[in-house]
Design a protein around this nucleic acid. Structure first.
Lengths: 127, 127
DNA sequence: TTGTTTATAATAATAATTACTATTATTTGA
DNA sequence: TCAAATAATAGTAATTATTATTATAAACAA
């Protein structure tokens, strides 16, 4: 039944993600973990990122640009993408869950949720 | 200044998209246009889809799955993705533009818009 | 009709991600 | 403690979606 075994590489990835506010791509994770594990392979990074996502320890963000981004903060929250610097910020805000009921009103099926992110210009790029 | 020249392939793509309620990928467009233009190449499809998007005649949807999808309906609207059949439906609904102001409240930058889609189970898959 | 220029088909290249495989690390339990 | 069992790894190849290249063909203006 494929019991999961400990791996120091996976731990390092998890720890790296929980300590950064950036929302790195697999490749960026790879570059950073290499500082500690110079021989880690990109495939290992991808596989572990997906394992962590499956376990709910990490969130995968897609649809923002060509690559998937990963977020170590798993508490539900939204994201803001800056059109200037392309950085992704966490966005704590009051719930907008009600948009699901709005959508449900005019749709002949069952709306169960939504995916959303905001975009604009971040503080730093405004200055 | 690169004036755009007429092309029957581009016209066929535009017409195909304006007559379907599906939200096909470039590859699906390719398969369909081949019925009329058996020699059309996938590169031509991609180039014209992007040209049409640039001209505002077609909308590109990304972040739904691994591939870009194209929509011939350009009037602003939302989309619903069925978790059962993976089809993408148009979703006419009242405005939820106010979520941008909600996001703005707690973000130290300028929120200019959002990207969102809904998911759940479509009528057909519920039955 | 001819000359100029854009568009095309065919193909190659790129980028992101997943699959494969021989070797290594982790774990179990005698 | 050690050895067998098995999951994880590094390295590499393969895949998928998309964009770039280029010689030829189609569109169009004079």
């Amino acid at each position: 039944m494929a019991t999961m075994k400990f791996s120091r590489q996976r731990e390092a990835i998890k720890e790296y993600l929980s300590n950064t506010k950036e929302h790195p791509t697999a490749d960026t994770v790879y570059m950073n973990i290499r500082k500690t594990y110079p021989n880690i392979s990109l495939g290992t990074v991808y596989r572990n990122l997906n394992l962590l996502v499956d376990q709910g320890e990490v969130i995968k963000l897609n649809g923002i640009d060509g690559s998937d981004h990963f977020d170590g903060q798993v508490k539900p929250h939204y994201h803001f993408v800056c059109n200037g610097c392309n950085r992704i910020y966490d966005l704590e805000m009051e719930s907008i869950e009600h948009i699901d009921s709005i959508a449900n009103k005019n749709f002949p099926g069952k709306v169960e949720g939504h995916m959303a992110y905001f975009y604009g210009t971040c503080q730093e790029c405004l200055e």
